[in-house]
């Protein structure tokens, strides 16, 4: 068939074969690029400007003066973050709280994931379902549930007072302890699921071999099970640690006024002080710290995909 006698449909088909691949890649690529990557560049830009009473509340970075463009970079926001110890405290607190919560979540989640992976067929899917279900239920409501339990007039205090174990109510809500409970509680499914998927794929005969060769059960666990489940441990820990560093809802609802965390600081700078440049600088500083764990997480994800294919 001569090429100048193509019908519209044939032309469309040819065009699709030539450009379809680009289109399928391009549309999600463009969306994520515009609404996920570009915003970070704007945050970076605004972190270098000065807050002012205007709409929007910051000075422009680029200005047209006499047909030339001048760029005013202002490092004041970052110097301010360094000079006020409030921010450093909030940072270190967030990292410490996130790290401790991650370890507690791992200690609770590992035996659970192991137990589920070793359960019999139908029981296993039921248990897995029970882990996934809370993950689908509202995060906000799961945090809220602990207010009623940990409060001064909450259920634990009511129960302990009733049994006579204590005579004065314990202060549990509005403490760092409550924040740990909240993070461990809401993020536990994120830890169990990746752990389960590595433990479930593991070859049980390796442990049997180790036991046959004279390993004690704990040695077999440390030398065989633990190293083989390392990808799951890392993926689960990063899935808990990274979002926990920037957590806002949990410290706000369960923590006290002294529980400084960086997510809360950013929120207050933005909503209470309406200082967008400082909030941006806080976000950039948090990202600089998180970029390594995030890239590590992506690396683990990619490796896992390659193994599956």
């Amino acid at each position: 068939m001569s090429s100048d006698k193509l019908t519209l449909k044939q032309r469309f088909d040819r065009w699709m074969i030539k450009h379809g691949r680009v289109l399928v890649i391009g549309i999600p690529y463009f969306w994520l690029f515009l609404f996920f990557l570009v915003p970070f560049l704007i945050v970076l830009k605004i972190s270098f400007s000065v807050a002012e009473y205007a709409q929007p509340p910051y000075t422009p970075l680029f200005e047209w003066i006499d047909e030339g463009i001048t760029i005013t970079l202002n490092f004041g926001n970052y110097l301010f973050l360094l000079s006020d110890s409030l921010y450093a405290t909030a940072y270190l607190n967030s990292i410490r709280i996130a790290a401790i919560s991650t370890i507690i979540t791992l200690l609770i989640g590992y035996p659970m994931a192991y137990g589920i992976a070793r359960a019999r067929g139908s029981m296993r899917s039921v248990l897995l379902m029970l882990v996934i279900l809370p993950f689908w239920t509202s995060f906000l409501i799961r945090v809220y549930a602990w207010i009623g339990i940990l409060d001064r007039e909450g259920l634990i205090n009511a129960f302990l007072l009733w049994t006579g174990i204590i005579s004065e109510p314990l202060i549990m809500r509005q403490t760092e302890f409550a924040v740990y409970v909240g993070i461990v509680y809401t993020y536990l499914p994120f830890m169990i699921l990746p752990l389960y998927s590595t433990l479930e794929k593991m070859d049980v005969s390796l442990i049997e071999a180790a036991l046959d060769l004279g390993c004690k059960p704990w040695q077999a666990f440390v030398k065989v099970t633990l190293p083989l489940s390392m990808p799951g441990i890392l993926a689960g820990s990063l899935l808990v640690f990274i979002p926990a560093v920037g957590e806002f809802v949990i410290p706000e609802l369960l923590g006290g006024p002294n529980t400084l965390m960086i997510g809360r600081t950013l929120w207050n700078e933005f909503f209470a002080n309406r200082d967008w440049p400082i909030a941006s600088a806080v976000a950039i500083a948090m990202l600089l710290f998180l970029v390594v764990p995030i890239m590590w997480f992506q690396h683990i994800q990619t490796k896992q995909e390659e193994r599956e294919q």
Binding site: L32, L34, F36, I42, G246, M286, F297
Partner: peptide, 27 residues
């Protein structure tokens, strides 16, 4: 970069995503 833009939103702290999108919309 594509796989990064898929993996990163899963763990990105919400305050950062929220602030950055707001600033994008304003700009």
């Amino acid at each position: 970069m594509f796989s990064g833009m898929i993996a990163a939103p899963l763990v990105m702290p919400e305050v950062i995503t929220g602030l950055s999108l707001l600033l994008l919309f304003v700009t």
